[in-house]
């Protein structure tokens, strides 16, 4: 067992899924001989052939619709979008078809497809390459929105997403594509969807996050630990449907909570979590829910990017305010 990166874990899961199920197909731009812009599909065309690893024309609206047709015919297409900034044409197909085909045909036709896309900032990429628009998808009925925060979760959650009988939007935090590394046994064991993961236990405050922000959040928890404050850290992992039970149970114990995400503050998934806490966990809250997020602005170009992204300092400032509230 060797240590691998998140993007390597994605490739390992894709290969595993293709190995075990002939109906799994990959579609996307430059995913064949080029291996994808982040090399997530590197070597897969050599291993599985052009029939199953298909370079498509530059038609972002088309591939999502193509996957709907393939899904209805019993295939399990996995579609790669090069960057989240190019995924928006697919929203038409996801809202109007993928998310509702099962419901509108009473299960006669279904759509077991996965849409993969790297997302998020912090790598000084060009314009339109750094956004975190997961909330757009989390609002859509009939789909799942899944975000891994580590190589092990990327492997297990992607396997689960591919095996799932319904459409999954799988967003990969590209800032942590190459580091940190983790040991992964390629055992084909999926990580369950629809549940949050407690990645650090603590009794004083609950920190809720997902994707690459797990790095800053865990770092903040370490800093707090040195000060004698034990933070519990929850990785949401499946943003839709949202496992509020795990979150409520943690906050019931800690009484204090901060939500951390890179996406813009307003209307973000953090707002849904905060609303869930207000609705069902208010009596356990000892302080207002803190939120640390991207600002409600256009993702800045690289020179101002670091001032947009939540940092450990910003997280600590909010958490200390939450802790100080009496």
């Amino acid at each position: 067992m060797s240590e691998i990166t998140l993007v390597e874990a994605v490739r390992l899961a894709l290969a595993r899924a293709m190995e075990e199920d002939e109906t799994v197909l990959l579609l996307g731009e430059d995913i064949g001989i080029d291996g994808g812009v982040f090399r997530a599909t590197d070597g897969l065309i050599e291993r599985f052939g052009e029939r199953r690893v298909m370079d498509t024309p530059l038609s972002e609206s088309l591939f999502a619709g193509l996957a709907v047709g393939l899904g209805a015919q019993g295939f399990r297409p996995v579609v790669e979008y090069q960057f989240m900034g190019f995924i928006y044409p697919a929203i038409d197909q996801v809202v109007n078809h993928a998310g509702r085909l099962r419901n509108r045909t009473r299960g006669r036709l279904t759509c077991p497809m996965v849409i993969r896309a790297p997302y998020g900032g912090g790598i000084h990429a060009p314009e339109h390459h750094s956004e975190s628009m997961e909330a757009l998808f989390a609002h859509i009925p009939g789909i799942r929105v899944v975000i891994p925060s580590s190589p092990a979760h990327a492997y297990g959650l992607l396997l689960a997403a591919i095996r799932d009988p319904d459409p999954v939007v799988f967003l990969e935090p590209k800032r942590i594509y190459r580091a940190p590394k983790e040991e992964i046994a390629d055992d084909g064991v999926a990580t369950p969807l629809d549940q949050c993961f407690t990645v650090r236990e603590g009794r004083d405050v609950t920190l809720i996050t997902w994707g690459a922000m797990i790095i800053e959040t865990l770092a903040a928890a370490e800093t707090l630990a040195a000060e004698g404050v034990e933070a519990e850290v929850i990785d949401v992992a499946t943003l839709k449907p949202l496992d509020m039970a795990t979150i409520l149970s943690s906050v019931e114990r800690t009484g204090r909570c901060a939500i951390i995400h890179e996406a813009p503050l307003s209307g973000g998934v953090g707002a849904e979590i905060a609303a869930g806490l207000a609705n069902r966990g208010l009596v356990n809250l000892l302080a207002p829910v803190g939120r640390v997020a991207g600002y409600d602005t256009v993702m800045p170009l690289p020179r101002l990017e670091i001032y947009y992204m939540p940092t450990q300092e910003r997280i600590l400032r909010t958490v200390r305010r939450v802790l100080a509230y009496a």
Partner: peptide, 14 residues
């Protein structure tokens, strides 16, 4: 017209 891509997916399956 949003079903034209589905037709291509179905044909691809065939």
């Amino acid at each position: 017209g949003t079903h034209a891509p589905h037709a291509v997916g179905v044909a691809h399956a065939f």
